[in-house]
Simulated scan of single mutants.
Amino acid sequence: MDRREALKGLLGFGGLATLPPSARAQEAWPSRPVTIIAPFVPGGSSDLIARAISGPMQRAIGKPVLVENRPGANGEVAARAVNRSAPDGHILMIGSIGTWSINTALRPNLGYDAERGFTHVTLAATTPNVLVVNPERVPARDVTGLVAWLKENRGRTSYGTSGVGSSDQVTMELFKQVTGTDPTHVPYPGGGAALTDLFAGNVQMMVTNLSILTPHIQSGRLRAIFITSRERSPLLPDVATATEAGIPDLVVSSWQGVMAPPGMAPSLLRQVHAEIAKALRDEATVQRLDQIGFQVVASTPEEFATFQADEITRWRRVIQAAGITPE
């Protein structure tokens, strides 16, 4: 019996055609370049983390790891595309709290199911938000002073954000709910535009990621009122936490999580998770992210799924109470 006949005998009549589709489709991972989708423009948090892990991951798996920016609709454009991709580990996506949590709470007709429409890989990293004011427009130096100033100037105060449904907005709306204040929301097409108007005094305050605000706080252009982490940040050791300032409910993390297309085989998920987690824990990655205010988490897929579900529940309550609607 020659080799061809022996192979037929092992596989059954018809050879490879008799294998189940899943077995035929599965291939060694990675068999080609891996692409990490970042659903925002270059320079944002998702992009920075994707690029931070691409190098160590590429060295470990021996294949190129590419970062592709696909912005639009607070991550919805990219998420829809990934949702329809093959779950073979060659397409991954790192998205923000907005993409994986707030969008679900805010948009009833969202074009993807953030909980069941993807394979959870890991909660990658978290960073707190900071509430800042323009020191030339707002005399307050702490929460007590800010709340008093806002109440004295009802109807004449405003805050800027990077857009409706952003982490910036929902954090500020939570602040308004727990303090009984009412600054007007002014959404911008991005955080840079909001900062420009804050510097100009067209809005008086803003809440956004520590990584974005730190240099402006350190230079004195902005005054930090509080940070939303449980503990003070080493980058801003003199800035009190919201809890220290008497607002214990205002512990908020802006976070980034890695997802894959739905239906990934458990064995492949273990491989992908192991490589992503290893890249996140790489010494250079940890140092790079720590410098911009991110703390590496690298959770298990199960921990990420539980965390995401809790976040969706939390922000749905805030969004409903604030009456926030999509643009």
Score class of each variant (00 low, 15 high):
residue 92 L to E: 05
residue 91 I to D: 13
residue 57 M to P: 00
residue 71 P to N: 08
residue 74 N to P: 02
residue 45 S to Y: 01
residue 71 P to Y: 15
residue 33 P to E: 01
residue 66 L to D: 07
residue 35 T to W: 08
residue 36 I to C: 02
residue 57 M to Y: 04
residue 34 V to I: 13
residue 87 P to I: 14
residue 53 I to Q: 00
residue 78 A to G: 13
residue 86 A to K: 14
residue 88 D to K: 00
residue 34 V to Q: 02
residue 95 G to P: 15
residue 80 R to A: 01
residue 91 I to E: 12
residue 89 G to I: 01
residue 42 P to I: 15
residue 84 R to W: 11
residue 52 A to L: 07
residue 90 H to Y: 01
residue 77 V to S: 09
residue 60 A to F: 03
residue 70 R to E: 12
residue 34 V to D: 03
residue 93 M to S: 02
residue 39 P to I: 08
residue 65 V to M: 10
residue 61 I to Q: 02
residue 50 A to P: 12
residue 46 S to C: 11
residue 81 A to Q: 15
residue 32 R to Q: 07
residue 51 R to T: 09
residue 67 V to W: 15
residue 74 N to K: 11
residue 59 R to G: 05
residue 52 A to C: 08
residue 81 A to V: 09
residue 72 G to T: 09
residue 40 F to K: 11
residue 33 P to K: 01
residue 68 E to I: 10
residue 86 A to W: 12
residue 37 I to A: 13
residue 60 A to W: 02
residue 45 S to N: 06
residue 67 V to H: 12
residue 45 S to D: 10
residue 87 P to Q: 07
residue 38 A to H: 08
residue 96 S to C: 11
residue 64 P to V: 06
residue 61 I to A: 05
residue 42 P to Q: 07
residue 53 I to Y: 05
residue 34 V to R: 01
residue 33 P to W: 04
residue 46 S to F: 03
residue 47 D to Y: 08
residue 58 Q to S: 15
residue 75 G to M: 07
residue 95 G to R: 12
residue 72 G to V: 10
residue 54 S to T: 13
residue 53 I to F: 06
residue 59 R to N: 11
residue 51 R to N: 09
residue 39 P to V: 10
residue 35 T to C: 10
residue 55 G to F: 04
residue 63 K to N: 11
residue 73 A to G: 04
residue 93 M to E: 07
residue 69 N to K: 04
residue 67 V to G: 06
residue 56 P to K: 03
residue 50 A to C: 09
residue 33 P to C: 04
residue 82 V to I: 12
residue 80 R to W: 06
residue 93 M to P: 13
residue 30 P to E: 00
residue 37 I to E: 02
residue 51 R to C: 07
residue 32 R to S: 01
residue 53 I to H: 04
residue 87 P to H: 08
residue 38 A to E: 02
residue 79 A to E: 14
residue 41 V to E: 15
residue 54 S to K: 13
residue 84 R to D: 09
residue 48 L to V: 09
residue 51 R to Q: 14
residue 61 I to R: 00
residue 32 R to I: 00
residue 86 A to I: 15
residue 61 I to L: 14
residue 72 G to Q: 10
residue 70 R to G: 13
residue 32 R to V: 00
residue 76 E to G: 12
residue 64 P to T: 03
residue 62 G to P: 08
residue 37 I to M: 11
residue 57 M to L: 15
residue 43 G to N: 06
residue 54 S to M: 13
residue 37 I to Y: 05
residue 33 P to D: 00
residue 65 V to Q: 03
residue 92 L to C: 08
residue 81 A to C: 06
residue 45 S to C: 05
residue 64 P to C: 05
residue 79 A to I: 11
residue 78 A to L: 14
residue 45 S to K: 02
residue 49 I to E: 04
residue 96 S to V: 06
residue 51 R to K: 11
residue 61 I to T: 03
residue 94 I to W: 00
residue 65 V to W: 07
residue 55 G to R: 13
residue 96 S to I: 07
residue 78 A to H: 11
residue 36 I to S: 09
residue 79 A to N: 15
residue 36 I to Y: 03
residue 40 F to I: 01
residue 44 G to T: 12
residue 40 F to T: 07
residue 88 D to Q: 00
residue 69 N to H: 05
residue 89 G to M: 02
residue 73 A to S: 14
residue 64 P to W: 05
residue 94 I to Q: 00
residue 54 S to A: 15
residue 76 E to Y: 14
residue 73 A to T: 09
residue 71 P to K: 06
residue 85 S to M: 12
residue 37 I to Q: 01
residue 58 Q to I: 04
residue 66 L to K: 06
residue 78 A to D: 08
residue 34 V to A: 12
residue 47 D to E: 06
residue 46 S to K: 03
